[in-house]
Amino acid sequence: MIKMSHISKTFGTLNVLSDINLTIQEKEIVAIIGPSGSGKTTLLRCINLLEMPTTGSVTVGSVTFNADGNRSNETITAIRKQIGMVFQNFHLFPHLSVLDNLTYAPIHVLKTPPEAAKNKAIQLLDRVGLKDKASAFPAQLSGGQKQRVAIARALAMEPNIMLFDEPTSSLDPEMVKEVLDVMKELTHNHMTMVVVTHEMRFAEAAASRLLFMDQGRIIEDTSPKAFFTKPKTKRAQEFLSRLV
C-alpha cells in the first residue's frame, strides 16, 4: 500500500530523515512515536508529499513518486488522492460552515453533485458525533470538535489511507478522548492509518504496529506490545523511562 525507499530529507544543512525504508500494508494501523525533532512529522508529510523527499521514492497504491525521476504534478495528485490528512492544528476553513468544510473538496475536486456531497457530509458528521453542528462555523467549536470535523473532512474525500499528525497535541486534556474514540472507530473500518502521536495509550491500544524514531531514523519497528514491555534499543528504553 505504501512503500518508501531510501527516503532522505534535508533542510539546508539539517538532515531530518536519513535513508528511511518502510513498507506499510493495507489495513495496518501504524503509530510513529519518538522524541521531538526525530523526524516523525516529516516522515508522515513525505507520504503525501506535503514535504518533498530530497532523495528516494514513495509508492502509494500503484503510483510512484521519485525524488530524482517522476515528480510530475499528476503523480503528486494521484498519490494525494488516495490519502486523507489530519493536522495538529486542524486547519479547518474558518470562513466556511462545518458542512461547507466537508462538501467543498468533494464538490470542487471529485465533482460530486452538491446534494449527494451534502448527504455524505451529514452522514460523516453523524459518525463523528457532530451532526447538530453542520451549520456552525469552526470558531464556534471546541478543539476536540474541530478535530473531529477535520477527520470527517478528510474522510469525505474517500481516501484509502489516513495520516494523522499529532492529532491530539493541541487539545485540552479532556478533549483528547473524543478524538481518539473517533480514530479508534476508524480502525474498525479497515482503513490504513499512520499516526504520529504522543498518546502512548492510544499507540498501545489501537495500533497494530509501532515505529520508534530517533535522529531521522526508524530505530525500532515492532508491535506495540513488544515495544512497551521490552524495548530493544537503549534510546527507546530511555524515552519510555522518562514518560510519566
Binding site: N48, G84, A105, V109
Partner: peptide, 29 residues
C-alpha cells in the same frame, strides 16, 4: 496561515480554486 494551503493541498484542491475560495476570502477579511 500556511496550514490553510496545506489543507488545500492534502485535499487536492487545485491552486486557483484554493486561492479564490479559501485563501483570498480570508486575506480580504
Amino acid at each position: 496561515d500556511a496550514g490553510q494551503k496545506e489543507a488545500c493541498l492534502s485535499l487536492n484542491i487545485p491552486r486557483h480554486k484554493a486561492m479564490k475560495d479559501i485563501i483570498l476570502p480570508q486575506a480580504i477579511r
